[in-house]
Write a protein that binds this DNA or RNA. Structure first.
Lengths: 213, 213
DNA sequence: AACATAAGCTACAGTCGTGTATCTAATGCT
DNA sequence: AGCATTAGATACACGACTGTAGCTTATGTT
């Protein structure tokens, strides 16, 4: 119902999707500050008038695109495998962050003039569904099951994984899978009072909780 | 040597400093993408011609300003106080990050078109002096003194503090002093195999690291 | 088949930033 | 005091983006 062949003119959702895709591409390429109706229109192969019929300026188009972007998969803690689930959660995050929508969010968050406009609704939709909730979904799950002392699950600890991912992205070097494993083994698990499975320097017996002093 | 009174016309370093200040202010206000020679010129109260005599485009002005910005204080590990020094290092980082230069660096790092241009020289000058070296200076110092197992000081662990700070800044909530204490107690020290001074809250009486098991 | 809707096309005046080119006059040096 | 520099003040043509407006015509509906 959206790609019947002989058509020469897009309408409704068809058109809007094309425009959404275009803004996302555009913002990744030129940044929020250089977004223009012209650029978006050219990329979507639609005249500016069509854009102005719906949105008042480029940032509005972008915000709308973000609002309609598919939310990321949520990490679903499954088996009895905290470490594995954490790694999977971070992997999800990296995947999303590297997607057009993820990059666009990063762009808008760091733009002084548009960061303001993205308040309320979007903040919620964009962040509630993924913002900082990649690892914390997992962590809460295992905290309830007593896999580690519940008191250890502070806001700071819930942020460690995401923070490390974000820092690497900012440094221009997206974390590889083995980086993610290191994040979990060397930062998150120790903060929970657990130790990593086994490694050369850090010879721990198993994934046994080691209570602090 | 730079503000003799009766003068009506700035020259040399005087002028250049004014321009540097102007770009930094401008970029914080409008973002890298909307930087213009016009805007910089107006803010510095200098005609565009003067700008073009020295730089070819707004981003060059910005890069030059960053290059000449005062580098941050380096954290100097002093007494035998790992925890205190870590907190101080993070405090230094936050201070710098909130300064015009810090904000400008953040802006340029996240701009798709200018991130490329800032390679080489600036990368080194800007990052060598602070990039990720706030806590790691401290950490290396204490690792050599055997305050914790040297093998614990991995690149990941050296990043934890900075990562958490960066994440909070991105979230629009610059970390308070007590946040920084939490970062150290709940994330960095555990990753080193150490535990925070007093467990329940943060009674910062004994700033002495306590070895684990 | 006729109609309402909305996309596509084109044109326009207006604004803003760009580079460049003059000209002037303030400043620092000798 | 005289001179070389170089900031400051225009002015200019050019291009990019902006909103808006008017027209044509594809599309889905009835």
């Amino acid at each position: 119902m959206s790609d019947r062949s002989g058509r020469t003119r897009r309408r409704g959702d068809d058109l809007i999707n094309a425009i959404h895709t275009a803004v996302l591409e555009e913002v990744v390429e030129v940044g929020v500050g250089r977004l223009t109706m012209d650029g978006i229109g050219k990329r979507a192969a639609t005249p500016r008038s069509t854009l102005y019929r719906r949105w008042s300026d480029p940032v509005e188009v972008l915000l709308d695109a973000l609002y309609h972007a598919h939310p990321v998969e949520e990490p679903t803690p499954g088996a009895d495998d905290l470490r594995g689930d954490l790694i999977r959660a971070l992997k999800l995050m990296v995947t999303w962050t590297l997607s057009p929508a993820g990059r666009a969010v990063a762009a808008i968050l760091t733009d002084p003039l548009s960061a303001t406009k993205m308040s309320e609704a979007l903040q919620e939709r964009v962040f509630a569904h993924r913002g900082g909730t990649f690892t914390s979904t997992v962590l809460r799950h295992y905290a309830e099951r007593g896999a580690f002392p519940a008191g250890r699950l502070t806001p700071v600890v819930a942020d460690i994984g995401e923070a490390l991912v974000v820092k690497r992205l900012l440094d221009g070097m997206p974390p590889s899978d083995s980086d993610l494993i290191d994040f979990v083994d060397q930062a998150i698990l120790p903060a929970l009072g657990l130790s990593a499975p086994s490694s050369d320097s850090d010879r721990a017996d198993a994934a046994t909780p080691r209570p602090p002093a």
